[in-house]
């Protein structure tokens, strides 16, 4: 996840200090419940960006309280940000624990793949219900950031639920003909014959 590029993008808007960056990030993603970033992570990322010459300290402010270091984006930072805007974001292919559970349950006499699917489906539906309720309470003009993020989460859950239906349908088809076990090659030296 690119906190790095978020910081560059926010500094490209205007110079800011660390604390301000964190609240701007939070506003951007529609609240910390959506994407929690610890203050320490902001500061570490900021100092790494500074070491790489992508941001630089622009000023030090002191109005009564402690010193505030104001950071600005450098030309190198703008270049990096430009590359980010131009490129596509690579989706992270998750290691899917549910998939593992399902496949193992199919060949385990003590497990019921239909029950595995049902539990997962119920859980996804409850998540979807929660998001839908949140989504309905929001106003399109004032809460655009949250709405866009919720919409995305909703669409993903919808896809996961449709996939579960597909899995169940396929399972119905192969119910009487369990798939052959994948062939596993014996390890070590081949036996002498």
């Amino acid at each position: 996840m690119s906190v790095r590029h978020a910081i560059l993008g926010l500094l490209a808007q205007k110079p800011r200090h660390g604390y301000e960056l964190r609240s701007a990030f939070e506003a951007l993603i529609g609240g910390e419940q959506n994407w929690e970033v610890k203050p320490a992570q902001i500061y570490t990322t900021l100092s790494r960006l500074e070491e790489s010459g992508l941001v630089a300290e622009a000023a030090i402010e002191q109005d009564g309280g402690p010193e505030k270091h104001i950071f600005d984006i450098t030309p190198a930072g703008r270049e990096e940000l430009g590359d980010w805007f131009e490129g596509a974001v690579e989706e992270v292919h998750q290691r899917d624990e549910f998939y593992l559970k399902l496949m193992l349950s199919i060949n385990d006499e003590f497990a019921d793949p239909y029950a595995v699917i049902h539990v997962q489906r119920s859980s996804l539906f409850r998540d979807l219900h929660g998001l839908t309720t949140q989504r309905q309470a929001l106003n399109g003009m004032e809460n655009l950031a949250q709405i866009l993020l919720l919409d995305k989460a909703v669409m993903h859950l919808e896809a996961d639920l449709r996939w579960l239906d597909m899995v169940e349908g396929r399972l119905d088809e192969i119910r009487s003909h369990p798939p052959p076990e994948p062939e596993t090659r014996p390890r070590g030296r081949p036996k002498k014959s």
Binding site: F125, L128, H129, L131, T132, V154, L157, E158, L161, R162
Partner: peptide, 12 residues
């Protein structure tokens, strides 16, 4: 048929 629509309900 639509999971997104069903999710508005209290119970499925």
């Amino acid at each position: 048929h639509d999971p997104r629509i069903a999710a508005y309900a209290d119970r499925i």
